[in-house]
Design a protein around this nucleic acid. Sequence first.
DNA 1: TAATTTTTATAAAAATTAATAAAAACCCCC
DNA 2: GGGGGTTTTTATTAATTTTTATAAAAATTA
Lengths: 225, 225
Amino acid sequence: MNKAEILIIDDEPQIRKLLTINLENHDYKVVQATNGKEGIALAAAHPPDLIILDLGLPDINGQEVLKELRSWFTSPIIILSVLDGEDDIVIALDHGAADYLTKPFRSGELLARIRSAIRRNQNSDQHTELIFKELKLDLVARQVWLRNEVLKLTSTEYNLLLLFAKNEGKVLTHRFLLREIWGASYVHETQYLRVFVAALRKKIEANPNKPEYIITESGVGYRFL
Amino acid sequence: MNKAEILIIDDEPQIRKLLTINLENHDYKVVQATNGKEGIALAAAHPPDLIILDLGLPDINGQEVLKELRSWFTSPIIILSVLDGEDDIVIALDHGAADYLTKPFRSGELLARIRSAIRRNQNSDQHTELIFKELKLDLVARQVWLRNEVLKLTSTEYNLLLLFAKNEGKVLTHRFLLREIWGASYVHETQYLRVFVAALRKKIEANPNKPEYIITESGVGYRFL
DNA sequence: TAATTTTTATAAAAATTAATAAAAACCCCC
DNA sequence: GGGGGTTTTTATTAATTTTTATAAAAATTA
């Protein structure tokens, strides 16, 4: 097995150094970023197996970095923070953080929590892809594959498909879809949806008039399978 | 969706009470055990969606209970303990605990960690089917097969058939069916039902005027199979 | 049992909602 | 400022749901 790769996003050099030495001693490969922007870029360029994220970053609020990462990065993110407020912890966990440790932390415990997070993630190995039958969404590259071909989707088409894919099985109302993709003032432009759903179906469905992915819920909205 | 079920294994009555009230307020179903043996037995009898395990139990060492549970129980186990020693934490996590909190703990944080653990655990969607004689409902694909052909059902037709199939054998009143499919304000639109039952029968029954699947219960409702 | 009332089945219409093509407007990016 | 691609608008057709009408079946009553 290859070394698991861990990305550290933290602006304090001494913390980065401590973590790096510790992790490398335990046979992890370490990549470092000193601010949020760099961290997101590095994660996108080459998704690591786990991210350690400090909430107190110089450029972007750590919770925002977490949200941004969580929109496509599916491996665990462990939060390190000096903040011990319950709200900070709850918000981070609800935004999809795998764990939350307050500084100062104990190395052994952090390592155990890293092992735990990586172990648990192995079962639900989603990586940065969502797969549905013949369809594969690469969240990092924003590319969609159907069988062996890359589909050419416009930005709106991709956003809509991603929204469907993230809510597999649920009925999504016209209102919800329009608000999410176009914004609150477009909630009555149902026709936009019809046009883009038709465009998507043309590209992803074997037979667009018997759709298998995007199902119409007449009078309500759509459902993705 | 059904309530998630949580098993609390803790010998302190006041902790159990506090947890139970808190969890039930957040719409979890709670089951309690006061020692390790009882906890293992309850988990085996009816596996919950998550276990909260206190390490300081009167009969068996909590770490042993964890090991025993982990040999077959696959949903998350969160450890609660007065012990704050790094070794205890590392051992528990390496034995497969999803998380470790020390008492006294903060309720909001515990709830967030429970949500996080449950969220990460739910990944495996099975392809469930319901089969009735010649009829097969594929719940994931929302497709209905009669012998070897896919039936073309409208969304409402499918929803109605699914509702029947999920309540095989029971008499379903008009009121109930209308409320489930159309909503509470439609409970008197009995005629809708008649139209859609007729449409379904036309598609699934060999002989629609001698129905074998959807049986009329005059004055009351219908019964499936 | 016959007559009456209630309930059910079905077809078909009207109304609503959805799908699709194609034209017009918009937006970048060079 | 032109051109390729994308989004928005418009128009038309198709599908689904709701409403109406009517005949048949079942239940009730005397």
